[in-house]
């Protein structure tokens, strides 16, 4: 074969191989690390049953935060205005975590309790993550719950 052709062929082969490898790795990586977001209603309806680990989103119910006095364990209840789910977490809560605020937790169900490994409440008092607002919209429409605005937040 002509040396230039041969060189090109090797290069094309290299590129195709790299692309195939990268595509495979990306698909595998995505499958392993995808986290779905559910609201308490969806979880209780069994929508999250197929997932070992998922994200639970909603509002922290007023008066539900209970700190264990001797450890970093904390219990609270997440609500979407329709159904509620108890959450257990051990660690330090974010600055913006408080009652009646939007929260997204990552973890898994153990019995009837959601055991969170991560709690996120990154947004300011008037801002709710768009994805969470949409997920909760149905429950709120039904119960006429006053929701924080979805716009106007700062980082």
């Amino acid at each position: 074969m002509h040396p230039v052709r041969k060189r090109r062929l090797i290069f094309v082969g290299l590129i195709l191989g790299a692309v195939a490898m990268a595509t495979g790795a990306v698909i595998y990586g995505l499958q392993k690390n995808m986290n779905y977001l559910f609201t308490p209603s969806q979880v209780l309806a069994g929508r999250a049953a197929d997932y070992r680990s998922f994200r639970l989103g909603g509002m922290v119910e007023n008066g539900s935060i209970v700190r264990d006095p001797h450890s970093l364990k904390v219990d609270f209840t997440v609500t979407d205005g329709d159904r509620t789910l108890p959450v257990e977490y051990t660690g330090i809560l974010p600055d913006l975590f408080r009652a009646n605020q939007a929260v997204i937790t990552t973890g898994r169900m153990q019995g009837g309790t959601f055991v969170a490994s991560e709690v996120l409440a990154k947004h300011s008092a008037t801002y709710m993550p768009k994805e969470l607002a949409e997920a909760m919209a149905k429950a709120h429409a039904k119960h006429h719950v006053v929701m924080p605005a979805t716009a106007g937040g700062t980082p």
């Binding site: 990306v26 990586g29 995505l30 690390n33 995808m34 986290n35 779905y36 977001l37 994805e131 949409e134």
Partner: peptide, 12 residues
């Protein structure tokens, strides 16, 4: 509604 976890980015 999905999010992609940091391990995806880190390991790849």
């Amino acid at each position: 509604r999905v999010s992609v976890g940091p391990p995806y980015f880190g390991s790849l």
